[in-house]
Design a protein around this nucleic acid. Structure first.
Length: 618
RNA sequence: GGGCCCGUAGCCUAGCAUGGAUAGGGCGCCGGUCUUCGGAAUUGGAAAUAAUGAUGUGAACCGGAGGUCCAGGGUUCGAAUCCCUGCGGGUCCGCCA
């Protein structure tokens, strides 16, 4: 039984007690206390009841404490000015916590689609994309571990202007199709071709004409569109190398060009016309277009800004006309016209599928999920809202809980100048470059600590440290906060960082390795763990289920990142003050050793949910 | 102009959804510890080396200093948290994607 189970038990028993005492029914929230002398859990129900009944909260707290019947080892203590605190006996909490680490089942088979990464196939991933990937991948891991059936999608926008830009570079500006040796193709295209072509547009206006004609060719089946596919898939394969390097994985690649060629838009557009959400403009500045009006409660009739064009006056659809059917497909609001084929095998052994227009292979079910989570930065807020409100109108269902835009703030390079990363201008830090730099530094540190180790081993450890450092730094902040990517900061290996967490894990492994035998925990030996720092480590370990639950419900991986750091620093404090292997008292040694075991397992579970590897030795 | 978001020590950040007990961390700073690693020097010894160890160092630990929770008003027994107004910053508002 973990703290999460205690919480549920207390809630149930307290509800019964209130009912039996004839007190009014109120919503009960069992919360964690801020300090150990208040016990571990508390409710402020006496305040709520006091208000209703016009009585002193403390009197009600005393009364409830007297009436409530709790299991052995759990007591209720009234506290001024009206809290009801619950104290779990140290030995019992220790014993129960040390027996097992439990991940709660919250999903009950709910199907969830998570879309993340979705980098345009014309450049390498920069750290802004890295934030998207790390958030999305962590959430996918958390949801999967808590009993949800997840499908992870990486959307490939292979039909837009950005693709036309690089084709201009290859076909008209003389960029070679093969970069110089040692350069990744995605990096070469992003750094040289894409940036170069965008600079040339200013000086050579005729290039823009060329782009226009390429853009038209892309919609059809011809030499240029086939060349575009070849190039974008080559870039995609290199991007995936970076994604996999960051420990991410996907189930499906969805190609925008196939949404177009399968004409998924048509049936949606018909439905939208029928539902009268799509309106034809007879006059005004949008004459000849089909628009959708967002219901915003904007009362000013002169304000036309919340109209969004769906179909241009020349009859072509705008990009939102690709997003809407895809979003509808995710929730099963439109039929599944895709075929699917095997794209490649991933490092974790699973198959990465891709949408396809050709005859499909035997594939798992895609689309039609209970819930769709789209990870995109906050600048897409308005568009995502439009998409959801269109889907709501078409399906006449509220979708607030089913179509979720998980927005996060952008990554910038400097707070003073607020340098936004821009692929077009070539202002960004690539994920691979960042990882290489951190890895370099970690390699020096690892070598210092392991002079006799093989170069290959040192390199593999340094790589894992680099990934942990980057993933941790991108996931630890609130989604609403702008991340300033500071190179010096990202090279830090101490303080609140991924490597610090890995270090404490490795410390635990050292002790376990040297101890040799696995300890057997009994209630009496658990009671020996009575030191303040031991009790607080146990309490933190007992919160595993609660922490996972809240991050799954709030889609907030940051909570788990904080939790790994907190556990690690508590473990390090324990490590300094409670020697395990030197302890002469066999039973105490045994109890401490099982605490080390439990710490290792718990931390291993949580770091895994964050995609951080924990080597046994670093 | 309208929508959304942010404002917490020198810097970064948690807590805000669901109001509650002394606002929790990290970096940096000051002081200390040490089963980290290096080590001037001293003592013993012919030597290998052993003991002591200034001082440095640290993915380690302990302690300390550092706060108008942007401002003002309101609701409440109680506000960092809820409401209103204002200030500062960001972002979105193309027949681009």
């Amino acid at each position: 039984m973990t703290l999460r189970a205690y919480k549920q038990t207390i809630k149930r028993i307290l509800e019964n007690t209130i009912e039996k005492s004839g007190l009014p029914e109120v919503e009960i929230q069992v919360k964690e206390t801020t300090r150990p002398e208040f016990g571990q859990l508390y409710v402020n129900t006496p305040f709520t009841l006091g208000k209703i009944l016009g009585r002193m909260p403390i009197d009600i707290a005393v009364e409830l404490a007297g009436d409530i019947e709790l299991q052995e080892g759990l007591v209720a203590i009234p506290f001024q000015p009206g809290y009801l605190n619950f104290r779990i006996s140290g030995s019992q909490l220790a014993f129960k916590t040390l027996r097992a680490s439990i991940v709660p089942d919250l999903g009950k088979g709910e199907t969830v689609i998570i879309e993340h990464t979705s980098v345009n196939p014309n450049k390498a991933l920069h750290v802004g994309h890295g934030r998207n990937l790390v958030i999305g991948d962590s959430i996918a891991r958390i949801l999967k571990a808590t009993g949800h059936i997840t499908t992870v999608i990486n959307y490939v926008d292979d039909s837009g202007v950005q693709v036309a830009d690089i084709l201009v570079g290859f076909l008209h500006s003389g960029y070679p199709v093969w970069p110089s040796k040692g350069t990744k193709f995605d990096q070469y295209v992003g750094d040289e071709v894409y940036v170069g072509v965008n600079e040339q547009y200013a000086s050579t206006p005729s290039l823009e004409e060329k782009r226009k004609s390429i853009l038209q060719e892309l919609e059809g089946d011809n030499e240029i569109s086939r060349f575009a596919k070849e190039i974008t898939v080559r870039i995609l394969r290199d991007q995936l190398k970076t994604c996999w390097r960051l420990n991410s994985r996907y189930d499906l690649l969805a190609f925008e060009s196939e949404i177009i060629s399968l004409r998924l838009w048509d049936s949606l557009f018909r439905k939208m016309k029928r539902a009268r959400i799509a309106k034809y403009e007879d006059e005004g500045r949008l004459k000849g277009t089909w628009v959708v009006t967002q219901k915003t409660g904007n009362t000013d009739p002169k304000n036309v800004d919340d109209e969004k064009v769906l179909v241009r006056s020349d009859g072509t659809a705008t990009y939102i006309a690709k997003d809407i059917p895809f979003a509808a497909w995710k929730l099963g609001l439109t039929e599944d016209k895709f075929s699917y084929s095997n794209f490649s095998r991933q490092p974790d052994g699973s198959i990465l599928w891709r949408t396809s227009t050709k005859d499909g292979e035997n594939h798992p079910k895609f689309g039609g999920a209970n819930r769709a989570i789209t990870v995109i930065d906050v600048r897409q807020n308005r568009l995502q809202e439009i998409i959801r409100s269109v889907l709501e109108a078409v399906s006449s269902m509220p979708l607030r809980d089913r179509y979720i835009h998980l927005g996060y703030e952008v990554v910038i390079l400097s707070r003073e100048s607020r340098t936004n990363m821009s692929g077009r201008k070539g202002v960004y830090v690539n994920v691979d470059e960042a990882l290489n730099a951190i890895s370099q530094k970690a390699m020096i540190e690892t070598r210092k600590r392991n002079p006799g180790a093989s170069q290959k081993w040192v390199e593999s450890i340094a790589e894992k440290i680099a990934i942990a450092a980057l993933r941790y730094s991108l996931v630890r902040q609130d989604l609403d906060k702008v991340v300033v990517f500071d190179f010096a900061e990202s090279l830090r290996l101490d303080g609140e960082t991924g490597p610090y967490v890995q270090y404490s894990f490795a410390r635990a492994c050292r002790i376990i390795e040297k101890a040799g035998e696995e300890p057997v925990i009994s209630e009496s030996s658990a009671s020996l763990l009575d030191k303040e720092w031991e009790a607080s480590l146990i309490l933190s370990l007992a919160k595993l289920g609660m922490r996972i639950e809240e991050s799954a419900l709030n889609l907030s991986p940051k909570n788990l990142a904080k939790y790994t750091f907190f556990l690690s620093s508590q473990f390090n404090a324990f490590y300094e003050r409670s020697p395990v292997l030197q302890e002469q008292n066999k039973e105490l040694r045994n109890a401490r050793l099982s605490l080390v075991y439990r710490f290792k397992e718990t931390l291993g579970i949580v770091t895994n949910l964050l995609g951080i590897d924990t080597p046994e030795k670093i």
